[in-house]
Design a protein around this nucleic acid. Structure first.
Lengths: 250, 250
DNA sequence: CGTTGGATTGATATCTGTCAAGCCCGGTGG
DNA sequence: CCACCGGGCTTGACAGATATCAATCCAACG
């Protein structure tokens, strides 16, 4: 857990107009005027060091967050120290909707890497929702996305064997990269094996073996965190259980 | 799938005042005046025969439902015919919040038994929310409950072994019975082994063996659908992974 | 009563977790 | 620049858990 110097990001530096993620993030669907309003409402961009927390379970909700760079995992932990990772959030993803119903976060959010997030305070968010009807709809849709994402994960954990789970995950990550304008066939995994194994409900060793097996089957080529999908057809076939094309978030 | 005559339930028969479930259902927290308003907004009480559907995934949301008698399961199904059961809803539970974010249901809802539900149309519900601030809060809290419930299930499927999963389920069901004023030590399971096994992500045979094992260990006594909890302490200990006392819905 | 579908039990195969060893790479200090 | 860590990752061997297949069993119901 060391400190890596991050690009300086002061309040004045916030600019949704220039942000390359604007098509994925809150600005989506807003016109220039609305965008100005949003931009002036963003409180600040904050830096989170690897392994630090953005929020904890039970914390009062102070803001909605948008990931600008890095990666965040959300998880539940049990009294006896075990955890279940619930999701991975990447640049362009919005975070914090889990607290919407109770004003308190239902899970922990920890940085997998040094991370930069934009913060929109709840006050400003509420005000914005008052002014911009489109924002209200986006709020509800985000909660819906959250629920659907969790339901898909339930299906994955409850019905699939380990190889299928990994195939489903890789297929989904590939879709997300495509949405972001990156390669859908070659990308880096944003998380360590340990975290991915936990998310997929299996032992690290099993995950490693499944990576190897997919590689033997010439479906992917993997080297540490770099994954190349060599046979998208067979990958998707393995992930056949998946209900719908892809959800917005892993 | 046969037809069993259900108690006749016409519009005029709706009465939240007399309903034994009022402490668990929408009326909770409402005063007499508000209750009158709610009661007059309930459109009707509808009967659903065993194995019939209350709604399907993708259906437009028409109403919020409250279970009066019987039981409903919600599930996701895959193109290749497999399903993952997401939850079981019992008398007093509210159903339909899954569609809140998109106006479309995210899962199927099927009756496990002949079932009676009260229907509150979305129009009436929205109007009621306008008049009664307390209802607005209840709506958001319901969505939150839904999310937390699914997160708990993810933890169960992802981290526990089969015996612990069953222990967690039984412990949770016991709590719910207590909330309803029924015995927390002895109750009937509302679902078949097949459905419970699916919900808990295991084979029917494994579930059956785990029932037998818990019985051998003198933690429970089980005879078909009747379960007696003989050693609540050890049951809860087995379910130790559980984060919080109990959620409102299984 | 006989039928039927759900539930249990047993035998076995398969999958997955666990333990242990080794590998690889990046970081550190000489 | 190189040798030496140390952590994450992979691999192998094995044990244990769970699924599968098959045979009853049992209760509900006609």
């Amino acid at each position: 857990m060391k400190t890596v110097p991050l690009q300086s990001a002061k309040k004045s530096a916030v600019s949704c107009h220039n942000c390359s993620l604007s098509e994925l993030c809150l600005p989506r669907g807003l016109n220039r005027e609305e965008l100005d309003l949003l931009e002036s409402s963003i409180n600040k961009t904050i830096k989170i060091k690897k392994k630090d927390y953005l929020f904890h379970r039970g914390d009062n909700q102070k803001a909605i967050f948008a990931i600008k760079a890095g990666a965040i995992k959300t998880s539940l932990s049990t009294p006896d120290g075990e955890e279940q990772i619930l999701g991975f959030y990447l640049p362009g993803d919005l975070l914090g909707f889990d607290a919407f119903a109770r004003d308190r976060h239902t899970c922990d959010a920890q940085a997998l890497d040094d991370t930069l997030v934009c913060e929109l305070s709840m006050d400003n968010f509420q005000e914005l929702c008052g002014k911009l009807p489109i924002m209200r709809g986006q709020m509800m849709r985000q909660i819906g996305t959250e629920i659907e994402r969790e339901q898909m994960l339930l299906l994955t954990l409850g019905q699939m064997r380990t190889e299928e789970r990994l195939a489903t995950f890789l297929s989904s990550l590939s879709e997300r990269n495509k949405d972001r304008g990156f390669s859908q066939a070659e990308f880096n995994l944003p998380m360590a094996r340990h975290d991915l194994a936990n998310y997929l409900g299996m032992a690290v060793e099993t995950l490693s073996r499944m990576f190897s097996r997919l590689q033997e089957e010439k479906i992917i080529a993997v080297q540490h965190r770099l994954v190349k999908i060599e046979d998208m057809g067979r990958l998707k076939q393995l992930a056949h259980h998946t209900c719908r094309p892809a959800s917005d978030v892993l």
